[in-house]
Amino acid sequence: MQNSMTTSESLVHARGLTKRYANGFTAVDGVDFDVRPGKAFGFLGPNGAGKTSTMRMIACSSPVSDGTLSVIGMDPRTQAREIKARLGVVPQIDNLDTELTVRENLEMYARYFDIPRSVADQRTKELLEFVQLDERAKDQVEPLSGGMKRRLTIARALINDPDLVILDEPTTGLDPQARHLLWERLYQLKRRGATLIITTHYMDEAEQLCDHLVVMDKAKIVAEGSPRQLIDQHSTKEVLELRFADQTRDNLNGQLDGLADRIEELPDRLLLYTANGERTLEQVNERQIPIESALVRRSSLEDVFLRLTGRSLVE
């Protein structure tokens, strides 16, 4: 292809990107973002924020309703086939070919991409090793665990040696071990120079994997930056979490005023945003407010999200 990086070195370039469905629902409402090559770009937000719709437009599996979108320098409206030839897609819900074996899933996918058989055989072998499924090569897909299916889906997405890999909630529904194994594989992929776009509603996943994040809420982008930048900009260094007996909490009447930059009230606890959590806890104790338990921790993306939207990420 001759028309690769035309849009100032961004692999995906979106301006005013909008997705309206036939029923009138606006899932993505005029978002702007740029994905740089070699980086892991994350969409963080709760379910229904518009992450998947954005991903599906990038993957050319959902038509753009309005705005500009260019993917690898090409227009999804007219060059979907050429774009898809260079993408790897890991959808939110696995759509492996359940009538084929593990190895056949990769072999057949290679055929869809017109990859010559000798190259396909070699890649199939390498990828099965990469995702640690070489021992299950001859097995059917259905008996595999959720984590294994996910890894096979990732291997499948890499069969065409893509310039850009799109992962929609890669670890949702997996147990902790399976998640960590998957993160490790994705991290390897990043080290090899792949460009990744990841959606997630797990802040730890975003912090682990993403160089650059946009926070989405209600079809819009509400903040953008590296995980560190987002925390620095939108939250304090530390957080003091306090739990009270019910009647104490009802009768606080501003006793905590002035102790923190900001106080967030959650159903089961209060979050006090402050530069020094231990110091704030001392002050709480000095005021003789009866607390049930206290926890000091560093600010996270969860706090950023809470600050920006007033809601938790995972509900």
Partner: peptide, 14 residues
């Protein structure tokens, strides 16, 4: 049920 075609559509196949 199998959503086989969704997987196929992520490739150059239409």
């Amino acid at each position: 049920y199998a959503k086989t075609y969704d997987g196929v559509l992520a490739t150059p196949m239409g």
